[in-house]
């Protein structure tokens, strides 16, 4: 009888440590944002092909401009425009997110697949960020939206996949600070952008 309070209080949760509904909802929100960004970039790419003088709406100033970024080689890293990858990838993210958000459990293989795919996206996004900052010398706002959503999608998917394999202190610790991880990631990129384009920002003040 003495173990009953524990059962009501803690043991039930310990039997079911990985709750994925909230994560699923997060995937839906982030995936939809990423999808919108990729869609806009794709449409702008079409417009730019139809009319080379077309100025995309996100050409704000020399640093924040997608027109100058979209015409580069890096914008078609695999021989076709990158946002096509985003259309595919974010659609999958949204789909898995919706299923998880309904409380449905998915086979571990699918969660691992999500983690691997998202990690590949993360690597690609960082390559693009490096090219944008240090080779193209311009930032494209919609591309940065894609960077911004890919980071949490990848970090959290990897952590969830690891948690589903079994409880581990390091993984649980990282999971408990998952928002901070993403925040610090953003901070690093923000600082790199500030430093890189300081000449430009400082003349705007």
């Amino acid at each position: 009888m003495s173990d009953r309070p524990d059962e009501v209080g803690g043991v039930v949760d310990a039997n079911e440590p990985v709750r994925v509904r909230g994560f699923g909802a997060g995937l839906v929100v982030l995936g939809v944002i990423g999808l919108l960004a990729a869609f806009t970039l794709t449409v702008d790419k079409f417009r730019l092909l139809e009319d080379p003088t077309y100025t995309p709406s996100c050409n704000l100033n020399p640093v924040l401009s997608c027109g100058s970024v979209m015409v580069t080689e890096q914008a078609s890293a695999f021989g076709f425009p990158n946002p096509l990858l985003g259309l595919i990838g974010f659609s999958v993210v949204v789909t898995i997110g919706v299923v998880l958000a309904t409380g449905t459990r998915l086979p571990h293989g699918i969660m691992v697949g999500l983690a691997v795919g998202a990690a590949a996206g993360l690597a690609f996004v960082h390559w693009l960020a490096f090219q944008s900052l240090y080779r193209i010398d311009a930032l494209c706002p919609w591309c940065m939206v894609v960077w911004a959503v890919t980071i949490p999608i990848a970090v959290w998917s990897v952590l969830v996949a690891l948690r589903l394999r079994g409880s581990h202190r390091l993984v649980e610790g990282l999971w408990s600070v998952r928002y901070l991880i993403v925040l610090f990631w953003y901070l690093v990129i923000l600082v790199l952008i500030l430093v890189r384009f300081w000449d430009y920002w400082s003349t705007q003040l």
């Binding site: 100033n61 020399p62 640093v63 010398d137 311009a138 384009f197 000449d199 430009y200 003349t203 705007q204």
Partner: peptide
């Protein structure tokens, strides 16, 4: 016209 380029 520093603002017209990314590098001043």
């Amino acid at each position: 016209l520093d603002r017209m380029s990314t590098t001043g």
